[in-house]
């Protein structure tokens, strides 16, 4: 049965690419692609082929486009009111809602985590359970290629998805509004898309983290969903309770009231989705000048003008920093745990 004839197997040593920079991607088909990019493209194709991804993308795409549709139907009504915000007509596509269907940004902040979780909850443990991990690790690749490739693949899928969604919205806006976005608006949309990607990356890293510490994919998925539900439903309730509990008996000064309000707000900001919505509101509504409570003294003399992009960015920089740093820290922890993990066969 086994016809031992391996003369066909060529004996020449394969030119290894060790001299090349480790991650350089070779796009030329005749040349050899670097193993890392082989892994990334395999992971991307795995993600795209999986049913859970297809279902989630359909869910997100449909809800988001529905919300954009309602925003478009709202436009004739809101167009009458001329205000400083109207300069940023286009951005309303992302934020406008008719009250029945949440706006585009709300959908992203709600469903984005689910997408991130679904892309990563079985990243490492499935490799272990299938017994592929030790086999792949014995190939001439560094161990961190696996986690890096998984993360990068999921991130590129998410990026592609969000860039596509952003372009769809902009395209729909162009068709139905007939007004091109200004450069400022375009940049705001770009930053919004980048922020959404970072936000999903945060949840992606959380689920990769769970996929390392939990051997069972189901446990890991459940842990991720538990965190998601905790932050999207229970966290605000808990903060409300805490706020009620520690609220001062009597408010003596405006400053005290403002300080308390801001303290509660800062507690809220431990929630990544709060950081995300803070940041999107500021980016997509340039007239927002503050995210906290303000004293009268701060408002006096202020005139209601939209903020320039740079200032909007600076204002949400803490939020962005929090999200980005959280994402990186989660990744670092996952990376550390993965690298320290004993490789065993199944």
């Amino acid at each position: 049965m086994m016809n031992v004839n391996i003369t066909a197997i060529s004996q020449k040593r394969f030119n290894n690419n060790a001299k090349k920079s480790p991650y350089s991607m070779s796009l030329n088909r005749n040349k050899v692609q670097h193993p890392f990019w082989v892994m990334v493209s395999k992971e991307i194709s795995d993600q795209v082929r999986s049913w859970r991804f297809i279902i989630l993308v359909a869910l997100i795409a449909l809800t988001c486009l529905a919300s954009v549709y309602t925003a478009l139907t709202q436009f004739p009504k809101s167009a009458g009111a001329k205000s400083s915000e109207d300069i940023f007509f286009f951005l309303k596509l992302f934020t406008l809602s008719d009250g029945t269907l949440p706006s585009f940004t709300v959908f992203i902040s709600f469903l984005g985590p689910l997408l991130g979780l679904s892309l990563g909850f079985d990243a490492i443990n499935s490799e272990m359970n299938r017994g592929t991990l030790s086999r792949i690790l014995s190939q001439p690749i560094y161990r961190d290629y696996i986690i890096n490739a998984k993360f990068l693949a999921a991130l590129s899928v998410v990026s592609f998805l969000f860039v596509t969604l952003g372009l769809l919205v902009v395209g729909a806006g162009l068709i139905f509004l007939g007004i091109p976005p200004t450069v400022d608006e375009l940049w705001r949309v770009i930053f919004f898309v980048l922020l959404s990607i970072v936000y999903v990356a945060f949840w992606l890293n959380l689920s990769i983290f769970f996929s390392i510490i939990f051997r069972q994919s189901a446990t890991s998925a459940l842990a991720g969903i538990a965190v998601w539900i905790f932050f999207s439903i229970f966290y605000n309730m808990i903060i409300q309770l805490i706020a009620k509990g520690i609220a001062p008996q009597q408010i003596y000064s405006e400053q005290q009231a403002v300080n308390f309000q801001n303290f509660v707000l800062n507690l809220m900001r431990l929630n990544p989705s709060q950081l995300f919505s803070d940041a999107t509101v500021t980016l997509l509504m340039p007239s927002v000048r503050s995210l906290g409570a303000l004293t009268m003294a701060q408002v006096e003399g202020a005139i209601p003008t939209p903020l320039p992009l740079g200032q909007s960015l600076l204002m949400v920089w803490p939020q962005v920093t929090g999200l980005v740093a959280g994402t990186i820290v989660l990744f670092a922890i996952s990376y550390y745990l993965f690298m320290r993990r004993e490789v065993r066969s199944r």
């Binding site: 394969f14 892994m39 795995d46 299938r130 017994g131 086999r135 066969s345 199944r346």
Partner: peptide, 24 residues
């Protein structure tokens, strides 16, 4: 490895080609 595993959702050829490509 003992009790080796493969990517279950891919065919045998793919699994082999994948390993080969990881070996440049």
């Amino acid at each position: 490895p003992e009790d080796v595993g493969f990517y279950d959702n891919r065919d045998g050829v793919f699994n082999l080609i994948y390993t080969a490509r990881l070996n440049s």
